[in-house]
Measured scan of single mutants.
Amino acid sequence: MTFKLIINGKTLKGETTTEAVDAATAEKVFKQYFNDNGIDGEWTYDDATKTFTITE
C-alpha cells in the first residue's frame, strides 16, 4: 500500500510517499524521516486516505 506524508513545517514543506505493508510500518518510516530532517510537530493520520500530516 502507498502512504502519503504531507509536511507543513516552518522550514520544510512538501509531500512524499512510501510503500508499506500497513500504517504502523509507514509511521516508523515517516518518523525516521522527521528525525533525519529535524522536523518536530503535531501529526495526524487519516486512514481513509492513508495520509499522515505533520505540522510544526
Rank of each mutant, 00 (worst) to 15 (best):
M1C: 08
M1H: 14
T2F: 07
T2K: 08
L5W: 02
L5D: 01
L5K: 01
I6A: 03
I6R: 05
I7E: 01
G9E: 02
K10V: 15
K10D: 08
L12E: 09
K13Y: 11
G14V: 15
G14M: 13
E15F: 08
T16D: 04
T16H: 15
T16I: 11
T17F: 13
T17K: 08
T17H: 11
T18Y: 11
T18L: 12
T18C: 10
T18G: 02
A20I: 02
A20L: 02
A20S: 08
V21N: 13
A23S: 09
A24Q: 11
A24N: 08
T25L: 05
T25V: 06
T25A: 14
T25M: 13
A26P: 00
A26R: 01
A26V: 02
E27W: 13
E27P: 00
K28V: 11
F30N: 00
F30E: 00
F30V: 03
F30S: 01
F30L: 04
F30R: 00
F30W: 05
K31N: 03
Q32W: 05
Q32D: 10
Y33E: 05
F34V: 15
N35M: 13
D36W: 07
D36V: 10
D36E: 12
N37T: 14
N37I: 15
N37H: 13
N37M: 15
N37V: 14
G38D: 10
G38K: 12
G38A: 12
I39T: 06
I39N: 05
I39M: 11
D40C: 11
D40F: 14
G41A: 08
G41W: 15
E42S: 07
E42M: 11
W43F: 11
T44I: 08
T44D: 07
T44A: 13
Y45I: 00
Y45P: 00
D47Q: 07
A48S: 11
A48N: 08
T49D: 03
T49E: 05
T49N: 05
T49A: 06
K50E: 01
T51Q: 03
T51M: 02
T51R: 01
T51S: 04
T51I: 04
T53P: 00
T53G: 02
I54K: 02
I54R: 02
I54C: 07
I54T: 03
I54L: 12
T55D: 05
E56R: 03
